[in-house]
Design a protein around this nucleic acid. Structure first.
Lengths: 224, 224
DNA sequence: AAGATGATCTTGACACCGTTCAGATATGTT
DNA sequence: AACATATCTGAACGGTGTCAAGATCATCTT
């Protein structure tokens, strides 16, 4: 703990996200709350979710263990911020997937693949994202409004043929889609499927194939 | 730490699972590893997964914090044992659901509902079960052999019309079923759906409805 | 029967964790 | 220049997983 006495903003010298480009390190840290979130994400990608302690985040940002408490009331509030960033990025990936889909009939499937691909590219982040969503009472502000991922899926469902005025069917389809995507996202990481994934020529092909077989749970015939 | 000096087997005096009925408390504890697993499960049901620390389990079993290390090399090895017990019970629930299903064509759906129901009845336990399964390299011994849940699903898939000699299709259907069930199991606990669940007359009805809408991800038409 | 053996449990310690609080320090305002 | 406020540090508390050393007890050997 002796070398912590350096100027607080020394550990993020080259990152332009922390202070305005021209501003000459204005202040104790500059913009700690943003720095903490990005430090948390860096730890997540580098060392996994178990290494994501509040102290480690503070260490990574170059501040004392108590500093985060001036910007977040809790550890979970910090994680919530990290997760929020993740959900926004996932939302954009979903949006682009929908744009890419030529036929409206397959758009939902493409969205599902995009969802799972994101989760697989950022497994530690996704874990946190989902964990925070689990314990939440309701969806966060701005999740259903605007052009969020949720709304994208909603539109895709309508285009897939569900009657938009049937609120219950809309909701149930939305939920079913999310359930499926989440289930595939988590289980696609299982190591016991590595052999199958390799035999199918990559994880992407594996994911698509699993989606194609999902209908059987609803009593439909097996997919070809 | 002063009242810990009581005889070690004092805290489980009336529980018949720890020592053979006639045996007069044979030994230091009797059968600590089993006692630890059941203590862990008790904590899980009573206080949730976050309260499940190794020390708390030891406390609940009436032994010192280091005692578990003579029976499990790790905390995670203890959790694995707890999870194993859970998977076995879930397997039995699945088995009974399959027996209950009249038509082979709906057996898979019934299995799914049974899976989710179990997860919802033991949410904390299921969380641990799934977490341990995630980090596992392969399925534990005896999961695929004998009449386990996995094998039950396998048979149900065959009866649902998948060609049993097509190994890949069998595997993919199995995985898709598990993904779906897991996704529904976790998301059925979301508080944001409480309103919908109530409007549908209970969680059971909600679960069935979600399963019915799952096929849309594979490009099928919306369910009625 | 007595002593050796090895498994089982306790004690005490270590590093790390989340969290709090009093005090130091820099910023913004008057 | 002096005050007020936001921000950060240092030290502490109770909790955690884990380990090494010692105590205790069932069982095996002689």
């Amino acid at each position: 703990m002796t070398e912590t006495l350096q100027p607080p903003s020394a550990s993020n010298g080259e990152d332009p996200a922390f202070a305005a480009p021209g501003a000459p390190r204005r202040y104790h840290h500059g913009d700690l709350s943003r720095a903490l979130v990005s430090a948390g994400r860096r730890i997540l990608e580098r060392e996994g979710p178990d290494a994501l302690s509040l102290r480690a985040v503070a260490r990574e940002a170059g501040v004392s263990p108590a500093a985060p408490y001036h910007h977040f009331k809790d550890k979970s509030e910090l994680l919530e911020a990290v997760a929020h960033e993740g959900w926004e990025e996932l939302g954009e990936a979903v949006k682009e997937a929908r744009k890419r889909a030529s036929d409206a009939h397959v758009a939902l499937g493409e969205i599902g693949v995009a969802y799972v691909s994101f989760a697989r590219q950022h497994p530690a982040l996704y874990r946190i994202m989902y964990r925070m969503a689990c314990d939440r009472e309701a969806m966060p502000d701005g999740a259903k409004t605007q052009d969020s991922g949720w709304t994208q899926v909603e539109s895709a469902i309508i285009e897939a043929g569900v009657n938009p005025s049937d609120e219950r069917a809309m909701m149930l389809t939305q939920i079913a889609a999310w359930c499926t995507a989440h289930g595939v996202a988590e289980m696609a990481g299982f190591k016991e499927f590595d052999g199958l994934k390799a035999a199918m020529g990559g994880e992407q092909a594996f994911i698509r194939a699993v989606f194609r077989h999902v209908g059987i749970m609803s009593g439909q015939r097996a997919a070809s």
